[in-house]
Simulated assay, not measured.
Amino acid sequence: MADSDHSTSLSSVTRRRLLVGTATVSLASASHISGPVSARSPEETRHVPDMAFALWQEWLTAHEKTAAACRKQQRLETRLVKEIGFPRIVVAAPGEPEPVPIVSMEELDDLLGCEPATSSLRARARADLIAHQARWDAADETIGYSQAKHVEEEAAERERQLIETLWAAPAHSLAGVAAKLDAVLAEGEWCKGCPEFPWPQIRGALADLVRIGRLQNAFQGVGSSPSAESSG
């Protein structure tokens, strides 16, 4: 049976995907710059892999897979609902002012109880609910909705694990710090370009880091390469 928060899930993933990637090219162009946070020389630090930036790249790939899986299961759910309808029935129970929608046997038992007076109504309602659930299950098997939902859940769990690892990983470059801020924005903003504190401030800090990284790239000659110029 479908979850009730799918539309929220889809809009959330879609919104986050719009937020993510705005700094991807800029961060990639700055990834060679390591604002030294240790006693290493700038030249030495440039060649030290930044685990935070690498994790961000891995997380971004996982994020895209989750978004794609979410879109697929939403599409299949819409098709399933259109063809079959959610497996539920409406029961006109004694004592209730209006018919009551029922989606499970537990709800049906709670509504009608075990009294002999409702036994016939209960039996018909149970048969109707079982039949509707069977139609849903058969269509689901053909359409592949449940399988798609399972794939989405696995992708989302992988994304969650990666971002938790990213939060815990120390950044050793401007790109690493900027990558973590970009992930914070993607996970935290409730709307694109959210005006509420602290999101404008975080976006500003991210823009500062990218700008400083580009300036350092240009100063050290990295930014003068054709690839760097084309990515800007």
Score class of each variant (00 low, 15 high):
171 A>R: 08
35 G>V: 13
54 A>Y: 08
60 L>T: 10
195 P>K: 07
173 S>K: 08
138 A>S: 03
219 F>K: 15
189 E>Q: 08
137 D>S: 12
143 I>Y: 11
90 V>S: 10
226 P>E: 04
62 A>G: 13
6 H>L: 14
119 S>L: 01
58 E>C: 11
52 A>N: 01
169 A>D: 08
190 W>V: 13
20 V>F: 09
199 W>N: 02
12 S>I: 00
161 Q>W: 01
73 Q>W: 12
13 V>M: 09
89 I>H: 01
213 G>S: 06
224 S>I: 11
171 A>P: 03
50 D>G: 01
189 E>P: 01
53 F>W: 10
112 L>I: 04
95 G>F: 07
202 I>R: 04
133 Q>N: 13
28 A>F: 06
75 R>Q: 15
161 Q>S: 14
89 I>F: 04
67 A>G: 14
53 F>S: 04
19 L>W: 09
144 G>H: 06
22 T>V: 15
203 R>C: 06
155 A>W: 05
194 C>Y: 07
51 M>R: 13
138 A>N: 03
24 T>P: 02
128 D>F: 00
54 A>T: 05
10 L>C: 04
217 N>S: 14
25 V>M: 13
165 T>E: 12
194 C>K: 02
154 E>D: 14
22 T>C: 11
92 A>Y: 09
208 D>S: 11
4 S>V: 11
182 D>A: 13
99 P>C: 07
18 L>C: 10
112 L>P: 01
6 H>K: 04
164 E>T: 15
162 L>R: 01
16 R>G: 13
211 R>V: 04
63 H>Q: 10
150 H>L: 12
201 Q>D: 11
191 C>L: 12
36 P>V: 15
106 E>M: 14
159 E>K: 03
141 E>V: 07
145 Y>D: 01
217 N>H: 05
109 D>L: 12
136 W>Y: 10
131 A>E: 00
149 K>E: 14
158 R>M: 13
191 C>F: 04
5 D>F: 13
189 E>I: 06
127 A>M: 10
218 A>L: 15
31 S>N: 03
97 P>W: 06
192 K>E: 15
47 H>W: 10
134 A>I: 02
46 R>L: 06
160 R>D: 08
120 S>N: 08
157 E>K: 04
11 S>G: 09
134 A>G: 00
152 E>I: 03
156 A>F: 14
6 H>A: 11
113 G>E: 12
206 L>E: 02
33 I>E: 04
64 E>Y: 07
213 G>P: 00
115 E>M: 03
140 D>N: 07
62 A>W: 04
176 G>D: 01
202 I>A: 03
49 P>Y: 07
204 G>C: 03
69 A>C: 02
226 P>S: 01
123 A>N: 07
117 A>V: 05
107 E>Q: 08
32 H>E: 12
230 S>V: 11
107 E>S: 07
160 R>W: 06
81 V>A: 00
169 A>R: 04
2 A>W: 11
197 F>V: 07
164 E>L: 15
9 S>K: 12
116 P>K: 00
8 T>M: 14
130 I>T: 15
97 P>F: 08
152 E>C: 06
205 A>S: 13
78 T>M: 06
190 W>E: 15
72 K>W: 06
169 A>I: 00
56 W>V: 03
54 A>L: 11
186 A>D: 09
202 I>Q: 04
218 A>W: 13
150 H>W: 13
2 A>V: 09
95 G>S: 02
16 R>K: 12
